[in-house]
Computed example of a mutant assay.
Amino acid sequence: MRNDMITQPTAAATHADDLLAAYQHDDFFLASPKGTLLCRGRRATVSLQDGSAPFGEQLRAAVDTSDDPATQPAIAVGALPFDTYRPAELVVPHTVHRGGPLPARSDEPDQGIGIPQWNTETIPDAAAHQHAVAQAVQQIRSGAIDKVVLARVIRLTTAQPLGGRVRRILRNLAARDPRCYTFAAALPSTAGTRTLVGASPELLLSRSGTTVMTNPLAGSAARSPDPAEDRRRAEALLASAKDRREHTVVVEAVVENLRPLLRDLRVPSHPSLVCTATMWHLSTVITGQVADADIAAVDLARALHPTPAVCGTPTDRARATIGELEPFDRGFYAGTLGWCDATGDGEWVVTIRCAEVGDHELRLFAGGGIVGDSDPAAEVAETSAKLRTLLRAMGVHQEL
């Protein structure tokens, strides 16, 4: 069957838990509801540039010019940064291992990653972020932009090496919420080894054959351990005019970007609710068929990225506002990560709920969508809560 040919790995398919246990800090790992992928090594790279040959042709050329084409998997993997103007490339790995989805677990994550004390810095601090949100609200109310997403970062440093602890962080994230897209990818760096690791709730898009699916999330609410309160919060989110407006902006932008590339677009008229272990989200599943077989999953990902869910709208003005108000470089936070094969099939996720792990540094990111009726104090509280949740999920025990 065609799908068997697409997913044929270099090594035999393996149980998902075994792939997680085998992960090393310079591998590529992605676990999704469809299955688990572990890629190792670098045999070639594929540069992503506008106006170049179709991605499938580039990937086949990279395979054909490798040292041993017979063992080269026709797949490329990697992460793309938030800034779409930066150079980007994907890696063609030495080996590809596939397994089923990670199993659901009832046990709690590991009790920490073995660092008793960190030096901690939050950028921007609460007061500065509240001021930035107020400035953004002012711009929105003046009509300069419709929405912008502003983020914060916690920078934790330690004298102890962190590279060997990425696997434990990855295991903690997978145990906390196997419904998310759990990932780890080595990043290009001139300052030692750096790895992007996280558990995102959001699929940017997938392509299988001619069928494309994207699932934008926008509008969220924290969950409660009390079932009645949890349901009340979910229903309040679904009825929230502010969150529905924020969600509609994202869906409309996704549809506008996909319309020239897909046919038979199907867009539900109302959002639905989805949840992770800690959050409720407004969700819309959009499907369509590729208009041209040469349009690969990575091409569609680049056409959509960045969505208003991580940037804002209009995109260029929102991105400029982020540059003015955020005092740090996002790097690969709010970018996209995934894989694409030579037929054009692939899967790409939005890199949120994530951290960048260096030799002695851990940077965690969290953001929130700002619209005209956003409350600056509430936005500070939201990002602080997200950062604390992410710390706990990774097994980092540090007070903010």
Rank of each mutant, 00 (worst) to 15 (best):
C180G: 09
L48T: 01
L265Y: 09
A61W: 02
A104Y: 10
V380M: 04
L364A: 06
E399W: 04
T351W: 01
S189V: 06
G41T: 06
P306G: 03
P124K: 11
L20S: 06
P178G: 12
R194I: 00
G35I: 10
M1Q: 13
Q49W: 04
H247M: 05
V77P: 01
L150V: 09
L304C: 03
A88Y: 07
A134P: 07
T313W: 12
V148K: 09
G192D: 05
S208L: 15
N215R: 13
A22G: 02
D67P: 01
D316I: 07
Q117D: 07
Q72E: 11
Y85S: 15
A334D: 10
L150N: 09
A186G: 05
A31F: 04
L19A: 04
P103K: 09
D83Q: 05
S47W: 06
L59D: 08
R353V: 02
S208C: 14
V133K: 03
A11E: 10
Q135V: 14
C275E: 15
Q117T: 12
G112A: 07
A293C: 03
T122A: 14
T214E: 08
R155C: 07
L38W: 02
A16I: 01
I322L: 12
G312S: 09
T383D: 10
L300Y: 05
T214I: 08
L80W: 11
L261S: 03
D125W: 09
E356M: 00
H131Y: 11
S206F: 07
M5Y: 12
R233M: 10
R231Y: 04
L19E: 05
R232Q: 14
T248S: 13
A136W: 03
V380H: 07
L304E: 04
T7P: 01
A70M: 13
R176N: 06
G41C: 03
V349C: 11
T383C: 11
R2M: 10
A185H: 05
E202R: 14
W118C: 00
A355C: 01
V91M: 12
T321N: 04
P327H: 07
G358K: 00
T95W: 06
D4E: 15
M5E: 14
R363S: 00
V249R: 06
R232F: 06
S106I: 14
S374Y: 08
A222I: 14
D264V: 05
T10W: 02
A334R: 10
P9M: 10
S189W: 01
G35L: 07
D17H: 09
R388C: 08
A221Q: 14
M1E: 12
H129R: 03
Y85I: 11
R223V: 12
D316R: 11
D359C: 00
A228P: 06
P87Q: 14
A291H: 05
L362V: 00
C180F: 00
R266S: 10
L265H: 08
M1V: 13
S208I: 14
R98V: 15
T383V: 15
A191H: 01
D359G: 00
V350D: 11
T45I: 15
D299T: 14
F29P: 01
T315M: 04
C180I: 02
V77N: 04
S106L: 15
D329C: 03
